[in-house]
Computed example of a mutant assay.
Amino acid sequence: MSAAGPSAADPSTGDPSAGDPSASGSSAPRATAVTAAPGTAAPGDAAAPGDTAGTAASGRRIGRRLVRLYCGLALYGASSALLVAAGLGLEPWNVLHQGLGELTGLSIGVVSIVVGAAVLLLWIPLRQRPGLGTVSNVFVVGLAMDGTLALLPDTRSLAVRVPLLLAGIVLNGAATGLYIAARFGPGPRDGLMTGLHRRTGRSIRLMRTAVEVAVVVTGFLLGGTIGVGTVLYAVSIGPLAQAFLRVFTPAPAPAGSTVVAGTTPGRVILRP
């Protein structure tokens, strides 16, 4: 997958803190997401006691978000598998995962799960709080990657590998937009960037660049694949994810609804 905002995002920065007044210096109030728990009324909900209409609507919204979350994570794993099968270069973290797989003999999906869990442990000193999407990210992406790789035939012809590469990058952008739109928390690797930003005071751009350069170099030295696909992914994933996020982000809930739409983190591309 970290992992990686909405239509207003600037993918060049990868800044999960956007939309946060403390990050922008603005003191303007920000809408927050409030979801009514089953059987309870959200603040400002004028529904009469015992009226289950609001609860049912809230439940449907949560259900749709869960579908977006798990479809996005599964598709992210599948898209990463397409990049692996193409053999023309991987996204930064999967360069490391592949290199560690070569070193340990484990599958790239299993290594992704182990690395994701290890990165999540680094959230503790950084005082980051994981969400459902964060924990799910660790397991679903790796399992989907290995499952897809098991189904893909061995490909050696460029006439097949190039379309696989392009399909993988586009599908990765769609999966990223779908996963972010679910709003269940950042991927473990993106939370690491955010935590480093908050603890060091350095920009998200600098933290992401430093971490991902270190990840790519380490992965390459261990045997991970760097190539034209790595460069193409780096320059295209931001615009693709941003475009798909516009498609998958639901319209804000109307005033008086049990769910008040809040701002989605801007300038962030979450990657598992």
Rank of each mutant, 00 (worst) to 15 (best):
G109L: 09
L270E: 01
A251N: 02
A81D: 03
V141A: 14
T264Q: 01
G77P: 14
V217P: 06
S236R: 02
R183A: 14
Y70A: 04
H97G: 01
P265W: 01
V211D: 00
A159T: 08
V170E: 06
L151V: 11
A33S: 03
L164E: 04
R202T: 12
V215T: 15
T148K: 03
V119N: 03
D154I: 14
R65G: 15
A144G: 08
L206P: 00
A181Q: 10
L178M: 15
G142R: 09
L232G: 05
D146L: 08
V114H: 01
L121K: 00
L192P: 04
V115T: 08
A36C: 11
A234T: 10
G99C: 02
L122H: 02
R156Y: 09
P186F: 15
D20V: 12
G187V: 13
L245K: 00
A175Q: 11
L232F: 12
A243G: 04
A3D: 03
D15P: 07
A81F: 07
P153E: 11
G50I: 14
F220C: 00
A3L: 15
V140K: 03
Y76K: 02
P254W: 10
A53R: 15
M193K: 04
L66S: 11
T249R: 11
G109D: 03
L245M: 12
R65P: 07
A78Q: 04
A36T: 01
I124Q: 01
R271D: 07
T148W: 03
I180S: 05
A261N: 01
R61W: 13
A48P: 03
A56Y: 02
S26G: 06
G77E: 13
A31W: 09
P250Y: 04
S79G: 14
P265I: 04
V160G: 02
S17T: 13
A255M: 02
I204P: 00
A56H: 04
A167S: 12
L69H: 07
Q98I: 10
A85N: 14
L240T: 03
G101C: 08
T209D: 02
G262E: 06
P163Q: 02
G19R: 10
G72L: 13
T258R: 01
D51G: 01
L143K: 01
A23T: 08
L103P: 01
V211R: 01
G19V: 14
A3P: 07
W93Q: 06
A241W: 03
T32Q: 05
A53S: 15
G256V: 06
L66A: 13
M145V: 09
P188D: 09
S157R: 10
S12D: 12
P49V: 12
P130K: 09
